Amino acid sequence: MKPVLVFSRTTGFRHDSIPAGVRAVGELRPGVEATEDPDAFTPGNLARFAAVVFMNTNGHVLTDAGRTALEGYVRGGGGFLGVHSAAATEYDWQFYGDLVGAWFDRHPQVQSARVTRVDPDHPATAHLPVSGSRVDEWYDFRSYPDARILLRVDESTYVGGGMGVDHPLAWCHERLGGRSLYTGLGHTIEAYAEPAFRAHLAHALRWVTGESA
């Protein structure tokens, strides 16, 4: 089994939950390598990994050479998992926006809301209830993702949402060569100790690596 690279560099806002997120992925899967070094993004190094996880990255985090390497990796079949503020990363790089699926726009204060499972057949969401309440930071996105929607957040259950009744929260696609999955969950430290969210991450990783259908 190839290892997974977890990348958590930030040049903008930095989430306090990053260490918990990195630790959780390491506990969920053997062979995880964590880094904040953009020089890790070379064709030769990325070829060692089954997937790359952007764990609450933020801002401009890759060099031009690193961008080229990541694009080549994904187009060659490499897996990608973006967590929460991975959507607030590399705003001026269109390939990355296409890879994640949508860029972050704004959010209200952290609060409880109801999450609805859209896709009961995907491994990353099959274990989740049809709906349930949780506390997180609910992102509005600049556009609606052209992707398979897995989860939505119900704007009628919290204050400050701006996307309407169809507010995507997690999604996936395979249109760039490799598998990509993004989840808007993962703002809080506590999330990474929750069994349901940990299973969401674990199954998301198995899917992007091609280890599950």
Rank of each mutant, 00 (worst) to 15 (best):
L5D: 11
V6Y: 09
G12D: 05
F13T: 00
R14L: 07
R14H: 04
D16H: 10
S17H: 06
S17M: 06
S17G: 11
P19D: 03
A20M: 13
A20P: 05
L28D: 02
L28Y: 02
L28G: 04
R29E: 15
P30C: 01
G31C: 14
E33A: 13
E36R: 14
E36Y: 09
E36L: 13
P38D: 02
P38Y: 01
D39S: 15
A40I: 07
G44E: 15
A50M: 04
V52N: 13
V52K: 09
V53Y: 11
V53H: 13
V61R: 05
A65W: 03
R67F: 10
T68H: 01
E71W: 09
G72M: 06
V74E: 07
R75C: 10
R75A: 08
G77A: 00
G77I: 00
G78W: 02
G78P: 14
G78K: 06
G79R: 02
G79M: 03
G82Q: 01
V83I: 15
A86Q: 12
A86M: 10
A88Y: 00
T89E: 06
Y91S: 15
Y91K: 07
Q94H: 07
Y96K: 15
A102F: 12
A102K: 05
F104Y: 10
D105N: 14
R106N: 05
P108A: 09
P108F: 03
P108R: 14
A113E: 00
R114D: 01
R114S: 07
R114V: 02
R117C: 06
D119Q: 03
P120D: 01
T125V: 11
A126Y: 02
P129S: 02
P129L: 07
V130Q: 08
S131Y: 03
S131T: 08
G132I: 03
S133R: 11
V135I: 07
D136K: 01
E137F: 13
E137I: 14
E137P: 10
Y139R: 03
D140L: 03
S143Q: 08
Y144V: 13
Y144F: 13
P145F: 06
A147G: 07
R148Q: 13
I149C: 04
R152D: 09
R152L: 07
E155G: 11
S156P: 14
S156R: 14
S156T: 14
Y158A: 04
V159C: 15
G162Q: 08
D166A: 15
D166G: 00
H167R: 01
A170L: 00
A170S: 02
A170Q: 05
W171V: 09
H173T: 07
R175P: 13
L176N: 12
G177M: 11
G178D: 08
R179W: 00
S180E: 06
Y182L: 03
G184M: 00
L185Q: 06
G186P: 06
H187Q: 12
T188V: 09
P195C: 09
P195M: 09
F197D: 03
H200R: 03
L201F: 08
L201R: 02
A202W: 00
H203Q: 12
A204W: 01
T209K: 07
G210K: 13
G210F: 11
